[in-house]
Design a protein around this nucleic acid. Sequence first.
DNA 1: AAAACCCATACGAAAAAACTATGCTTGATC
DNA 2: GATCAAGCATAGTTTTTTCGTATGGGTTTT
Lengths: 296, 296
Amino acid sequence: MRYFIAVVEEGSITHAAERLGIQQPPLSAQMKTLEQRLGIRLLTRLPRGVVPTPAGNALYEASLKILADIDKAVNTARRVDRAHAGNLHIGVTRSTISHPLIKHAISTFVEQHQHAEVSIVSKGSLELCSALAEDEIDLAVARPQESYSDRLRCETIVTESIVVALPTSSKFSHCASGPSVSLESLSELPAILYRDSTDPVLYKQIVRAFSNQGLSLVTIQETPSAHLALDLVSTGLGFTLVPQTLSDRYSDRIIYRPLIEPQQMQSSICLFSSRSDTDELSREFRLLLLKSSQQL
Amino acid sequence: MRYFIAVVEEGSITHAAERLGIQQPPLSAQMKTLEQRLGIRLLTRLPRGVVPTPAGNALYEASLKILADIDKAVNTARRVDRAHAGNLHIGVTRSTISHPLIKHAISTFVEQHQHAEVSIVSKGSLELCSALAEDEIDLAVARPQESYSDRLRCETIVTESIVVALPTSSKFSHCASGPSVSLESLSELPAILYRDSTDPVLYKQIVRAFSNQGLSLVTIQETPSAHLALDLVSTGLGFTLVPQTLSDRYSDRIIYRPLIEPQQMQSSICLFSSRSDTDELSREFRLLLLKSSQQL
DNA sequence: AAAACCCATACGAAAAAACTATGCTTGATC
DNA sequence: GATCAAGCATAGTTTTTTCGTATGGGTTTT
């Protein structure tokens, strides 16, 4: 099956053989026996390579999915094995792990379950969700997603407001002087935005907040992560907007101010989990996190 | 993979080997190499047989699905192959093929597509839907289903009313004398119902219609098909209720009368098709049928 | 205590898959 | 238009995988 996929994708038995690390004649033979066993012509032989027949194309599409399913099945088995051995893989992002509530929940959990081995995986929110869907991890503490697999469950743990990170330079002093800042007062100042490919939601949210109020956003720099954006802020280049949690970690030559209009500028931290997961450990961690969320 | 499934289902390597037509030692070896390659313990060896570990169980469940998917993929390829060769498999039930509209549509289609080979498969509605979902057939003309795969599309072609089939015996003469019959007048008479396991909807519909009006239904006989029920009606045993189409075919010593309250006693004929189907022939047949439906 | 049951190991045999060498067809090149 | 290159197919051999037979060890049953 893997062979057939390679042949279709390469459009050539010879090239597919190279990719598979085998010789061309055996691959030709394999394709022939495959066609014989199914009783269907799958490939039309051209003088220059091969092309799948409609039936071959249908089989190719299905094969891709089946191969992916097999991988996933193995992952699932591995995860169940881990879980049963008292091993929990929790996925977090750099920003969510910074939040005291999350940190506290994890440390409490580890204390309460001395026998359990907890490993933390750090990735972007997007990657965490696909890793979760592929059963590579058991739980993910991530930012909300625009779309994710319907086999996942998403529960909001905390909603934190977004704050303005201002450089100490004089250019921003009129903002820093007040107790809070309006979006309008930021609209003409140089902004540093982070366009994290692994977590694209917050970026869009910020851009939308400005455009919704008809304000212009002067983006002088885009960075691949919020942390880097804050580093640039401390150089005085411009301001940025970050979830409040991050303000505790980077305070060197940065002044943080809340927004006057916080309602549409909030960022949640969510717990993503597999709906089908019946594992005891992950269930307990989930309940612990939900409980701490309610105590807020 | 097939081997692993057999082992789990039999709970014994020895018995699984029998079922697979191979010897026990090679199967033991296969299971061992499988576990080694995945790096997971899948089976716990008991003194009396084997039992899957949680991970093994997860893999078993997934494997079942994957094996089914593979079968389906092959079917799909076969169907595409057929379709491309101008071969259309249409599924019908005994009752839907009796309807003149359907018959006419099929004969028109065959005439218009002389080059096409059309084969008719006759099964119960339930089986037709699963055959369609498995890509064994291209289209199904069947009775409405309570639930079916979301990959299928269901379009109502005709809605026909259900009529009462009365024996000629004197016991039923007061019903047969009028132009139409009420459910109430039937409620104390002996009924013959057909509980077709392959088409359970109509049975439920009839039972509900009576119970909704608080009427009792005296079922003296259940048969596995409507045709057989009509045969019993002609012996004078009792009455039954059938879609109008069937009344044209069985008229020996049976009197048909419409119901006074036809609204909740109707039976549709639907065209089921695969949403993903892009084949030309099946598309044309579908459009032909929808067109004849609209001309009604 | 012996028998029955079942899994694991060991080794030889059969089958499947892969490699090398080579031929054949077809489009590209000069 | 003859040669060349590209790519698939076939043939025969070798290697790898899978399967079968024989046998041993542990556990429950009688």
